[in-house]
């Protein structure tokens, strides 16, 4: 990345920044009215996210100036810390602040430093939390309703395949029909993701706002796994797409400490297999779950993208004053 001395100006107009500030205020008053507590979580942590497909940005910290320094990891989401608060009895909480993801630039929808809204609701499941997400975003985006389709339904509608039962060969063949890619991969989820991003998401843009829910159990991340009406194992996870843009990701949260520990360790193994950096796992999350976390649903929403959609902007750079190239 080169620094151009001429590029001193913001990429977002002052008018867009005013509208952005109004949306931030609207979000805070939404939660204040519903008695959800605003919390501030550390942006730097001694532990890093386990997800093999998220890369953490490292900061260096020294206990005193000039002494040996060691890594702190910029958070990719405040999830781990917020769950520790939930286990400590916080009740409903939200976090509106920065998150950081290495390598996520070079797109109209990404900036490696971005604003994330994340909130947790004890006593709600994923379907009930979708209601609340809709209550928040519909007035901001001036929309009337959000459609709901299961992961199986969107694959059925746009590709006529069953994402839960289709074999690897079927998924590869279907992907090759739509996507020109030279790839050899035996992970079904890779091909499902390609179909999702290259075929389904563009189609979803015609539907306006859509919740896609009941993801494959293999893509559960930190969601509970349940059995759906078709006796299929699915993750209690949803994503919100607006105009084909992925805006939010929510779970009926995993509360089982042992299962959580297994998923962290499995991620670390995958990292090793892929030659990715091994970073300290957040075992304090496992301890928190052992102590007991209320049954709850949680969701993370990309605020820059929300503003982008609300303003009808083509690019995330239009709603961030100084994106990475100018930061």
């Amino acid at each position: 990345m080169a620094i151009d001395p001429q590029h001193w100006q913001p990429t977002a107009s002052i008018n867009s920044l005013r509208k952005r500030a109004a949306i931030m205020a609207q979000i805070r008053s939404f939660f204040a009215e519903r008695d959800v507590l605003e919390v501030e979580m550390p942006l730097m942590s001694q532990c890093a996210v386990s997800d093999p497909f998220l890369d953490t940005i490292e900061a260096r910290y020294a206990d005193y100036v000039g002494s040996e320094n060691y890594p702190l990891y910029l958070q990719t989401s405040p999830e781990y810390a917020m769950k520790r608060l939930l286990a400590a009895g916080s009740g409903a909480i939200f976090h509106l602040g920065k998150a950081f993801r290495n390598g996520e630039s070079g797109s109209r929808r990404h900036n490696p430093e971005f604003t994330m809204l994340e909130w947790y609701r004890p006593g709600l499941d994923d379907q009930q939390l979708m209601d609340e997400v809709a209550d928040l975003i519909l007035p901001i985006l001036k929309l009337d309703s959000v459609e709901r389709l299961s992961y199986a339904q969107v694959f059925k509608r746009f590709l006529n395949i069953d994402p839960h039962t289709a074999t690897l060969e079927v998924l590869v063949a279907e992907t090759r029909k739509h996507v020109d890619i030279d790839l050899d991969d035996d992970d079904r989820d890779t091909w499902l993701n390609l179909l999702m991003s290259h075929v389904i998401e563009p189609n979803l843009s015609d539907l306006g706002a859509v919740f896609v829910y009941d993801y494959p159990a293999s893509q559960a991340a930190l969601a509970q796994v349940k059995t759906d009406a078709q006796s299929q194992q699915v993750a209690s996870r949803f994503e919100l797409f607006v105009d084909g843009i992925e805006l939010a990701n929510g779970y009926h949260e995993l509360t089982d400490a042992q299962e959580q520990k297994q998923r962290l360790l499995k991620d670390q193994q995958t990292r090793e297999k892929l030659g990715l950096p091994q970073r300290p796992l957040e075992m304090r999350l496992v301890s928190a779950l052992e102590a007991g976390i209320p049954d709850c649903a949680g969701v993370a929403l990309g605020v820059d993208r929300l503003v982008m959609l609300a303003l009808g902007a083509d690019s995330i750079q239009d709603v961030i004053a100084f994106p990475i190239e100018r930061a």
Binding site: D51, F53, S105, G106, I181, D189, T190
Partner: peptide, 26 residues
């Protein structure tokens, strides 16, 4: 050139290319 990165899952780079010999874009 557009990075494609789902919140959960691997990153890809989607590129619109123009073949300079034939003029074809894909």
């Amino acid at each position: 050139v557009e990075m494609v990165k789902p919140g959960k899952g691997q990153a890809f780079t989607r590129v619109k290319l123009k073949n300079l010999m034939t003029g074809r874009t894909w």
